[in-house]
């Protein structure tokens, strides 16, 4: 891992991106003892407005808590892709929901398009686990946190009674990494 890894999760309020960021950062900092900071920005609406959640993971002390050199961008809306792709250096990995982001991701990026929301709704059975499917996908594609840490963090944050559903969501996300992101996985080796 490089010293500082920057993740931006972008979409709409209600898609669970803030919670996804919290879980990812918690997995890294509490369960893997790295340094991690999670932050967010959103509008005054409780759902439906643009929402952005950022996670910085580092072996060193984290000073500036916001992303400046994005390593991973997740887009769950076309608007998010349009807004944030231009902030990404060419080294960034871009993950997008293939149903919700119809625009093409520029060739210069390593990118993965997967029907994240549809997988949550149809394969897992509940659309509200979209964020957890996305986390499974991110985990398998990047290895930025280990699966045991991520699973512990997920189970610590989701409502009681939804544990199995969320474990399944992680699994579906990880399977999607192989189905839609084999090119990334083979490059990682």
């Amino acid at each position: 891992m490089s010293k500082r890894y920057e993740i931006r999760l972008a979409g709409l309020g209600g898609q669970g991106l803030v919670l996804a960021g919290v879980i990812l950062a918690e997995a890294a900092s509490i369960f893997e003892n790295k340094n991690a900071v999670q932050s967010q920005s959103y509008g005054p609406e409780s759902r439906g407005g643009a929402s952005k959640s950022e996670v910085i993971i580092s072996d060193e002390e984290i000073d500036y808590p916001k992303a400046t050199h994005i390593d991973l961008l997740l887009c769950l809306t076309d608007a998010a892709a349009e807004k944030y792709l231009k902030d990404c250096p060419e080294t960034a990995l871009v993950i997008a929901d293939s149903d919700l982001v119809p625009s093409a991701i520029p060739e210069k990026y390593r990118s993965v398009k997967a029907p994240i929301t549809r997988l949550a709704r149809e394969t897992v059975g509940k659309e509200f686990v979209t964020n957890i499917v996305a986390l499974g996908l991110i985990q398998e594609l990047t290895g930025i946190v280990g699966l045991p840490a991520l699973e512990k963090a997920v189970l610590g944050r989701v409502p009681k009674g939804t544990e199995d559903l969320n474990k399944r969501a992680l699994e579906v996300g990880r399977e999607a990494a192989h189905e839609y992101g084999a090119h990334i996985l083979s490059a990682r080796g």
Partner: peptide, 9 residues
Amino acid sequence: EIVAHMREK
């Protein structure tokens, strides 16, 4: 707001 809403260990 950044300190209020960001999360750290």
